[in-house]
Simulated assay, not measured.
Amino acid sequence: MIRYTAIFLIIAIIAAVFGFTGISAGAAQIAQILFFVFFVLFVISLVGRMLNK
């Protein structure tokens, strides 16, 4: 999932450089959402491991 976040972030940066602001904003928003989903799943995984011991 972090891979998709990086891909959308790169797409957003490239689109911003070439002036495609709409595409850039959309890709950046998708990257941000995926990052937060990844982060929440990571924290849940850590808490689950701590409670499992």
Rank of each mutant, 00 (worst) to 15 (best):
L51K: 14
V17H: 01
I13G: 00
I33P: 02
I44M: 14
F18L: 15
N52G: 04
F18T: 13
A6F: 01
L51A: 13
L51I: 12
I33V: 14
F42A: 10
I11Y: 03
G19P: 00
Q29S: 14
K53R: 15
Y4L: 11
F39M: 09
I44V: 15
I2N: 10
I13Y: 06
L46M: 11
A31E: 05
I33Q: 12
M50N: 11
I33Y: 13
I2C: 01
V37E: 06
G19T: 02
I10P: 00
A15I: 02
V43P: 04
L41R: 09
M1Q: 03
I11G: 00
L9M: 05
L41G: 08
V17A: 06
F20A: 08
R3W: 03
V37S: 01
F38V: 02
L41E: 12
M50E: 14
I10L: 09
G26H: 04
K53I: 11
F36D: 06
V43M: 06
T5V: 02
L9R: 13
A12L: 00
A25E: 11
A31I: 03
A12M: 02
V17K: 03
I33F: 14
F35T: 13
G48H: 13
T5K: 05
I11F: 04
L41T: 07
A6N: 06
A25D: 14
M50W: 14
I14T: 03
I30L: 12
I14F: 07
F39D: 01
T5Y: 03
G22R: 01
A27F: 02
T5A: 10
V37N: 00
A31S: 15
G48N: 14
A16D: 13
I14V: 12
I13R: 02
Y4I: 00
A28N: 05
A28H: 05
I33S: 09
A31L: 00
A15F: 05
F39R: 03
F36H: 08
I13W: 05
L41M: 14
F39G: 00
A31D: 01
V47S: 11
F39L: 15
I11W: 04
A15G: 06
S45M: 11
I44T: 14
V43G: 00
A27T: 05
G48Y: 12
V40E: 10
G48T: 10
I14G: 02
T5S: 07
Y4C: 02
S24G: 04
R3P: 00
M50F: 13
A12F: 01
A27N: 05
A6M: 02
M1S: 09
I30Y: 12
Q29F: 09
T21Y: 15
V37L: 15
F18Y: 08
L51Q: 14
I44D: 12
I14L: 13
F36W: 15
G48L: 12
I23W: 10
F20W: 07
F42N: 09
F36Y: 13
I23Y: 07
V37M: 10
T21S: 14
S24I: 05
I13N: 05
F35G: 06
G26I: 02
F36E: 11
F42S: 10
I14P: 00
V17M: 06
A15V: 03
L34S: 09
A16T: 08
V37Y: 09
L34A: 10
A15N: 08
I23C: 05
T5G: 08
A16K: 13
S45V: 06
Q32A: 11
I44N: 08
N52I: 12
I11V: 09
F42L: 10
V43A: 07
F8A: 04
A15E: 10
